[in-house]
Simulated assay, not measured.
Amino acid sequence: MSKEKKFRVDFHTHIIPDNFPDLEAKYGDDRFPTLKHTCSCGAEIYKDSKVFRKIEDNAWDPEKRIAQMDEEGVDVQVLSPIPVTFTYWADPEKCLELSKAQNDFIASCVGKYPDRFVGLGTVPLQDADLAIAEMERAINELGLKGIEIGSNANGKTLDDPEILRFIEAAAKMDVPIFVHPWATIGVERMPKHNFMYSIGMPSETALAAASLIFSGILDKYPNFKICFSHGGGSLPYLLPRIDQAWDVWPHIRTTEQPPSYYAKKLYFDTLVYDPRNLQFMLEKFGADHIIMGTDYPFLLREVPPGKVVELLESVTEEEVKQMLGENAIDFLGLSKSNYIKETVK
Rank of each mutant, 00 (worst) to 15 (best):
E4C: 02
K6N: 05
R8A: 04
R8F: 02
F11Q: 07
N19S: 08
D22R: 14
G28S: 09
H37F: 11
H37E: 06
C39K: 14
A43E: 12
E44H: 14
I45V: 14
Y46V: 11
K47Q: 15
V51P: 01
R53V: 06
E56K: 15
D57C: 13
W60H: 05
D61N: 15
R65Q: 09
E71P: 00
E72C: 04
G73H: 03
Q77D: 02
I82R: 00
T87C: 15
W89V: 05
E93I: 13
E93T: 14
K94I: 14
K94P: 12
S99R: 09
I106D: 04
Y113V: 02
P114G: 08
R116H: 07
R116G: 08
G119P: 10
L120D: 09
L125Y: 11
D129W: 00
L130R: 15
I132F: 07
E134D: 12
E136W: 00
E136G: 04
R137T: 10
E141C: 12
G143M: 13
L144F: 13
I147F: 04
I147K: 02
I149C: 12
S151F: 12
G155E: 12
K156T: 05
L158E: 07
L158D: 03
P161D: 13
V175A: 07
V179R: 08
A183E: 15
A183P: 00
T184Y: 01
T184H: 05
G186R: 13
H193Y: 15
N194D: 09
N194E: 05
I199W: 10
E204H: 03
A206K: 04
L207R: 08
A208Y: 08
A208R: 02
S215E: 01
S215H: 05
G216L: 01
L218S: 07
D219L: 05
K220F: 05
G233D: 12
P236R: 08
P236K: 10
P236M: 06
R241L: 11
R241P: 07
D247W: 11
W249V: 07
P250V: 01
I252F: 07
R253E: 08
P259R: 09
K264F: 04
K265H: 02
T270Y: 10
V272Q: 09
V272N: 06
P275T: 06
R276V: 00
Q279M: 07
E283R: 15
E283N: 15
K284P: 00
A287N: 04
I290V: 10
G293R: 04
D295W: 10
D295Y: 11
V309F: 08
L312A: 10
E319V: 09
V320W: 07
Q322P: 00
Q322Y: 07
E326D: 01
L332N: 01
L332S: 00
G333I: 05
K336M: 06
K336G: 11
S337L: 08
K341L: 05
T343S: 15
